[in-house]
Amino acid sequence: MSRRERRGILERPVMRKSFRTELRSRLLSEAAVVLAPRPRRFVPSWTILRPALAVAALALVVAWGTTSAAAVSLPGEPLYAVKRASEDVQLTLTFDDVARMQLLAELADRRLDELARTAEQQPSNAPTATTEYADAVTKFTNAVDELRDADSEDKRNAAQAVADAAREKHLAVLDAIKDRVPETTRSEIDSLIDDEQQGIAPSEHANPRGRETPHPEASTAPRATPRATLRPAGTPRPSGHD
């Protein structure tokens, strides 16, 4: 069957001439706008992009390397400040009081781990690590105390559970490391153990961060205003807290 024959099988409809003309006119008007050359957008050339990308990549590598190195740094090392700054940012951005208490518990655990590693690897930095740990425990126990006064029973229970778990763990670790630290720091560790056992915050005799570690004998001085924290479940809150 030829093409002509096939074409004849079905009717070949013809469109209205007026429509065809009107559509053509409309299309060409539209074409004048749609097909008009457009100003070229600025596209940065590879010559410009390449150094910029190289700088960005280098910055990323440096930032990643610094962060990674800081994560494993110990008290007294140069990158330790970076690690602490990062933790402070994280703490500032944690608004829920239970989450904040849990984060402070993690940080206290981290300081304890640092103290253990410092005692093993860099005993000379043990006093600094002890101070960092005491500072972290103080913040944690303050957060626990605040939650113990919370209206919500759930919050009170959460605080107690975290405090109990931390207390057990910290006592075990402190007990294990106290013989590995220098003599000058050992008495401080003993005091921390004593505080943990009695449920008292170490803030009164551990040194604030950045200050010189006092003589071991100084840490044996009686506490002026002991604060009750991390106390075992069911024990009453000391009256001196308020």
Binding site: L27, L35, A36
Partner: peptide, 10 residues
């Protein structure tokens, strides 16, 4: 037409 020649599109 793609380069802007409306007569070609027509």
């Amino acid at each position: 037409a793609g380069k802007g020649d409306t007569a070609a599109f027509g």
